[in-house]
Amino acid sequence: MTSMTHPEQGSESKHISIAEPSILDLQNVTISYSGKAAVRNVSFPIAEHKITSIIGPSGCGKSTLLRALNRMNDFVDDVSLEGTISYLGENLYGKDIDPVTLRRRIGMVFQKPNPFPKSIYRNVSWGPQINGYKQPLDDLVEHSLVQAALWNEVKDRLHESALSLSGGQQQRLCIARALAMSPDILLMDEPCSALDPISTSHIEDLLFELKSQYTIVIVTHNMQQAARASDYTAFLEMGMLIEFGATKQMFTVPRQKRTEEYVTGRFG
């Protein structure tokens, strides 16, 4: 085993502090699938109103980690989590935590666009509606679609099927759908991996726009995207956190050799 993947060095990043207040705090998080650890002893904070990207080679556990942040792993059999993830001081995995309420606050956009086979309008309005939203839905739908930079493209066809949209539009619709819940945190699991470069740049622009209002955690294996779009970066390899820090620092003066090799494209 090389020194770079030594667990001691992995947990070193725990001591790294960030300038902004943190909204999520991961402490010694270990996630296992039927006993096999996919994420090992990971700790880092997530800064409020910033974009944090999680990078690393495929299979490093980054998606698993992201899905732990709003307890989507609950739907996978045999997943167990040790350690704590605290959201404004409350442990997400505490006994009295209701995952439904939690997901209302911490929204998610998935790797592949997954609009419901309903109209564009219903896709956006559905979440608020079931959650007892009592104000005019039209305004909310419009606002969310505007925020997701999709409004101009769809305003005349709100009642058409969401499946009639292009892949990039569908993904922005999924973002609008998540935004309609006005979550505190938006989790994005490789949101551009199924999209063409133009749609990708649309969505990256969108991330900058959204930063002022939302905390965003994005998983990506696209280095440029991480470097362009995020404020903080966590680098995972084989389930362990190799390095965490401000993105600018990580991509210019990485502390770990392994990080340098990865961000410069020498492996992964």
């Binding site: 404004l88 209701d98 439904v100 309420t101 209302r104 606050r105 608020p128 959650n131 007892g132 939203y133 009592k134 104000q135 606002h143 006005s182 979550p183 505190d184 209002q213 939302y214």
Partner: peptide
């Protein structure tokens, strides 16, 4: 539109 933080959401609590 200000985002929600813990309370003061436009939602009524219907979860139970």
């Amino acid at each position: 539109m200000q985002k929600s933080r813990v309370s003061g959401t436009p939602y009524i609590d219907n979860l139970v």
